[in-house]
Amino acid sequence: MSPVRLVILAILFYIGYRMLRGLGSSGSGQVEEEKKDRAGKEPGVQDVLVEDPVCHTLIPRHQAVRLRQQGKTWYFCSEDCCDRFIEGGETPRDDV
């Protein structure tokens, strides 16, 4: 075999090796799925805004004060709003 053919064969084997190796490892779609699984949510989504039923302020859910009552979770912007809700001074409006 001539040296040119050996070089061409070597290049073709290298390209084939890289392609097979790329198929064996996780592709970009699988990487995104793994990130989603680890984080528990889609990448890029930081948090969801929730509305306080007393003062109607929008707050990130992870920063909200939570109250579990009658099987429903209520989110509040502060302890004061939560206390007002518990005392019955404010009622949530479902029509908003």
Results as ranks from 00 to 15, higher is better:
Ser2Arg: 11
Ser2Gly: 15
Pro3His: 15
Val4Tyr: 13
Val4Gln: 15
Val4His: 13
Val4Asp: 14
Val4Ile: 15
Val4Thr: 14
Arg5Ser: 11
Arg5Gly: 06
Leu6Lys: 13
Val7Glu: 15
Val7Gln: 14
Ile8Lys: 12
Ile8Leu: 13
Ile8Gln: 10
Leu9Glu: 13
Ala10Cys: 09
Ile11Phe: 12
Ile11Trp: 04
Leu12Gly: 02
Leu12Glu: 06
Phe13Trp: 11
Tyr14Pro: 00
Ile15Val: 15
Gly16Phe: 14
Gly16Ala: 15
Gly16Glu: 09
Gly16Cys: 12
Tyr17Ile: 03
Arg18Val: 10
Arg18Ser: 06
Met19Arg: 05
Met19Tyr: 10
Leu20Gly: 14
Leu20Val: 08
Leu20Thr: 05
Arg21Gly: 04
Gly22Arg: 10
Gly22Glu: 12
Leu23Pro: 00
Leu23Trp: 14
Leu23Met: 13
Gly24Ala: 11
Ser25Arg: 12
Ser25Met: 09
Ser26Lys: 13
Ser26Asn: 09
Gly27Thr: 07
Gly27Gln: 09
Ser28Leu: 12
Gly29Tyr: 05
Gln30Trp: 04
Gln30Asn: 06
Val31Met: 08
Glu32Phe: 06
Glu33Thr: 07
Glu34His: 08
Glu34Tyr: 07
Lys35Thr: 03
Lys35Tyr: 05
Lys36Gly: 02
Lys36Arg: 15
Lys36Met: 06
Asp37Gly: 03
Asp37Pro: 00
Asp37Glu: 12
Asp37Trp: 10
Asp37Thr: 10
Arg38Ala: 15
Arg38Asn: 09
Ala39Gln: 14
Ala39Lys: 15
Gly40Cys: 05
Gly40Ile: 03
Lys41Phe: 03
Glu42Gly: 02
Pro43Leu: 06
Pro43Tyr: 04
Gly44Leu: 05
Val45Gly: 02
Val45Phe: 13
Val45Asn: 08
Gln46Glu: 12
Gln46Thr: 10
Asp47Trp: 11
Asp47Arg: 09
Asp47Glu: 12
Val48Glu: 14
Leu49Pro: 02
Val50Tyr: 00
Glu51Thr: 12
Glu51Gln: 13
Asp52Gln: 02
Pro53Thr: 07
Pro53Gly: 06
Val54Asn: 00
Val54Gln: 01
Cys55Arg: 02
Leu58Lys: 11
Leu58Arg: 09
Ile59Ser: 04
Pro60Lys: 06
Arg61His: 04
His62Tyr: 13
His62Lys: 14
Gln63Phe: 09
Ala64Pro: 01
Ala64Arg: 01
Val65Trp: 03
Arg66Met: 08
Arg66Ala: 06
Gln69Ile: 01
Gln69Phe: 03
Gln69Ala: 03
Gln70Ser: 12
Gly71Ala: 07
Lys72Thr: 10
Trp74Lys: 00
Trp74His: 03
Tyr75Met: 03
Tyr75Asp: 02
Phe76Met: 03
Phe76Asn: 00
Glu79Trp: 07
Asp80Tyr: 05
Asp80Pro: 00
Asp80Glu: 11
Cys81Phe: 01
Cys81Ser: 01
Cys82Lys: 12
Cys82Tyr: 00
Asp83Glu: 08
Asp83Lys: 10
Asp83Gly: 01
Arg84Trp: 02
Arg84Pro: 00
Phe85Asp: 00
Phe85His: 04
Gly88Arg: 05
Gly89Ile: 05
Gly89Ala: 08
Glu90Thr: 08
Glu90Trp: 10
Pro92Cys: 11
